[in-house]
């Protein structure tokens, strides 16, 4: 039972990440491949503030969102002039840069030593350290994120985003300053990713740079592509499957020596087959 709680919590965290990234990639059509950076900023904000300054978890999450949004604002200002592959490459570059900061700025992040002892949330004397309570808390955040994402998607703001995806020049003709819109959604998305980061820091009680590499960003991309771009429901289901898949494979009984690599082989083949036969993912409306 505890194991299922554990997996469910991870699924929720990745679902939040997926939703946040989907807004930028699925709705706006920008291939942001550095999202793990914002995930990391949220996680480190919580880890640093709760361990060194004794700040309350929820306050640290707010700080994480602010820090992440701030970084996104600066990064987004540069990114907004690009599109397509260049956008992907530059956002990846920012991921590498932020990862280097996590790894090398020892004074702030303790570098590869990581920050242990991140506490579970506590609010008004209610302690969320038990697995069930934490799961409930995480689920609340997921619900909030989902509602926020849906609100954005269905609003006129969301319609502009989709128009940018379909034909940016056309909508510019109508007088929309697409740079602002692209920046805005990027910042919002970064803030959401930070929420997931704060949750994971508090859940595993430990943060280190290795969780925020480019490969992690790519994993989040895979989740939303599998689930279907611009399908919010798809992002959640995508997280469910892609988080459970390696765990299910753990039981597949590969010979121990190569079990982990075999999982990667299966995972890679899964992606290839998916792209060949169902690129729009499960629920994508975005016909790739």
């Amino acid at each position: 039972m505890d194991y299922i709680l554990h997996l469910a919590t991870l699924v929720i965290i990745y679902a939040i990440l997926g939703l946040s990234l989907n807004l930028v990639v699925g709705y706006t059509g920008l291939l942001a491949s550095g999202h793990a950076a914002f995930y990391g900023i949220g996680a480190y904000s919580t880890a640093i503030l709760t361990t060194s300054l004794g700040v309350n978890f929820f306050a640290s999450m707010a700080a994480g969102i602010a820090a992440s949004a701030g970084a996104a604002f600066l990064i987004g200002a540069v990114l907004s002039r690009f599109d397509g592959d260049y956008y992907a490459l530059v956002s990846l570059g920012f991921n590498v840069i932020i990862y280097s900061v996590f790894l090398n700025w020892h004074g702030l992040t303790r570098g590869p030593l990581g920050i242990p002892g991140v506490p579970r949330p506590a609010l008004f004397g209610m302690d969320f350290s038990s697995g069930v309570f934490f799961l409930a808390l995480a689920a609340c955040f997921l619900a909030l994120t989902f509602l926020a994402a849906r609100f954005v998607a269905r609003s006129s703001f969301g319609r502009v985003l989709k128009s940018i995806r379909e034909d940016e020049k056309a909508i510019q003709v109508f007088g929309y300053n697409t740079v602002y819109f692209k920046l805005a959604i990027f910042v919002i998305s970064a803030g959401m990713a930070a929420v997931a980061g704060s949750l994971v820091a508090s859940y595993i009680n430990f943060v280190d740079p290795s969780s925020f590499t480019v490969m992690e960003s790519v994993f989040i991309l895979a989740i939303i592509i599998f689930g279907g771009l611009s399908s919010l429901k798809g992002s959640v289901i995508g997280a469910l499957v892609l988080v459970l898949l390696p765990e299910a494979l753990r039981f597949a009984g590969f010979p121990q020596a190569i079990a982990a690599q075999m999982r990667h082989v299966v995972y890679g083949l899964f992606l290839v087959v998916l792209m060949l036969y169902r690129p729009q993912g499960l629920f994508g409306e975005f016909k790739l």
Binding site: D2, G114, I204, S210, S211, Q256
Partner: peptide, 22 residues
């Protein structure tokens, strides 16, 4: 029962969870 920690805290936590709870 052998599990792969991958020298990664998340993986190790997953592994420990499985070992302890399942």
């Amino acid at each position: 029962i052998y599990e792969d920690g991958k020298c990664d805290p998340k993986e190790a936590a997953n592994a420990a969870n499985k070992l302890i709870n399942i």
